[in-house]
């Protein structure tokens, strides 16, 4: 069910991670993803995973929530994992015609799986602890240098805000329309791929119509509230780097140093 999806859902709280500036959280997420890719051996990866888990603890959000967000993309994780088994070299464990599983392949698979899981974990920390508005504000601020190149940064951020607001609304609507068509005997569960795609037409058309109607209403509501683009706009919440952000930066540097050290000391598992 749609309502069970936890990926990318904000969970209000008062932990130090919640209190961090959205901009530093976004930049740190990018840095962490960079580290995850830089790590080329299990020790470095273990270091990253442990340091991420420490941050997860600091968010004071139940670990179950993180596991659930992992569940949503479990398929993706397993798929890439399994795919990787068949690539690689080294000692051959099992062979059948042109398919073979090698030591390198297994290593790749395990490594990639941990990498993706770690990435989901750190991304979840950002989305769980940052309100959608702070997130888009942060992105707007971070991208603002691009204004020099005539990139419509404010408009992009506004679009993201609206998308984040209306995705759950439209998902719920899709659920309702699907039920209504099922009640009229629409068969969405059986048949081949083509038949299933065709069976979605009675759901997709009303969904588009509804999205347009909502967009129209929303545009009117925004006009009523004097929306006039980004010009002359102020914000209620001012972003400020604080002590927490500084501490986080130091933490990040320590982790980075650790990863580099591991990469130098231990042999690379993957290339």
């Amino acid at each position: 069910m749609v309502r069970d999806i936890t990926l990318g859902q904000y969970m209000p709280g008062k932990s130090i991670v919640h209190r961090m500036d959205a901009r530093s959280k976004i930049l740190m997420l990018l840095a962490m993803i960079g580290f995850i890719f830089a790590a080329d051996n299990y020790m470095a990866l273990l270091l990253i995973t442990l340091s991420s888990l420490l941050v997860v603890l600091l968010t004071r959000i139940s670990f179950m929530m993180y596991l659930k967000s992992m569940k949503v993309i479990l398929f993706l994780v397993l798929f890439t994992g399994i795919l990787n088994i068949f690539y690689g070299s080294g000692q051959v464990y099992w062979e059948w015609q042109f398919i073979k599983i090698t030591e390198g392949g297994v290593n790749n698979a395990v490594f990639v799986t941990i990498r993706i899981a770690a990435m989901v974990l750190v991304s979840s920390v950002l989305t769980f602890t940052t309100s959608p508005n702070d997130l888009t504000d942060g992105i707007e601020k971070l991208l603002s240098p691009l204004k020099l190149f005539h990139v419509k940064v404010h408009e992009i951020a506004m679009m993201m805000t609206i998308a984040l607001r209306f995705i759950p609304v439209l998902l719920e609507e899709a659920d309702k329309i699907m039920n209504a068509q099922k009640a009229r005997g629409a068969d969405m569960e059986s048949g081949g791929a083509l038949k299933r795609v065709r069976a979605m037409v009675p759901v997709l058309i009303p969904l588009f119509v509804s999205a347009f109607r909502r967009a129209n209403d929303l545009a009117m509501a925004m006009e009523c509230r004097c929306y006039n683009g980004g010009k002359g706009r102020t914000r209620m919440k001012i972003m400020k780097f604080g002590g927490v952000d500084l501490a986080a930066l130091i933490y990040l540097i320590v982790v980075f140093a650790g990863v580099i050290l591991c990469n130098i000391v231990f042999p690379a598992t993957v290339r």
Binding site: N179, I205, P206
Partner: peptide, 10 residues
């Protein structure tokens, strides 16, 4: 017949 059934017309 659901609430606001007109939203199902396609």
């Amino acid at each position: 017949v659901f609430q606001y059934p007109e939203h199902q017309l396609f």
